[in-house]
Amino acid sequence: MLIKADTGRCVGAGQCVLSAPDIFDQDDQAVVTLLEREPGESLDLVLQAADRCPAGAISLEDGSAG
């Protein structure tokens, strides 16, 4: 499973960073960046981040990091 963060939708609220700081970060423009591409053991936290993101910018997709 791959984490998808849509930088076009991101509104910089920072909810993902608060939910899963090991997975998500904000760049200098406060836009979401991914520290990890797969949720691993943080799946619950990634799902929480996806639920709390006010812009619907975070999702999980089938597939592997290859």
Binding site: V11, G12, A13, V17, A30
Partner: peptide, 13 residues
């Protein structure tokens, strides 16, 4: 507006 303002209120800032 949002784009120019959010860096001022990011978690890190």
């Amino acid at each position: 507006y949002r784009k120019v303002l959010i860096p001022e209120f990011s978690v890190r800032r």
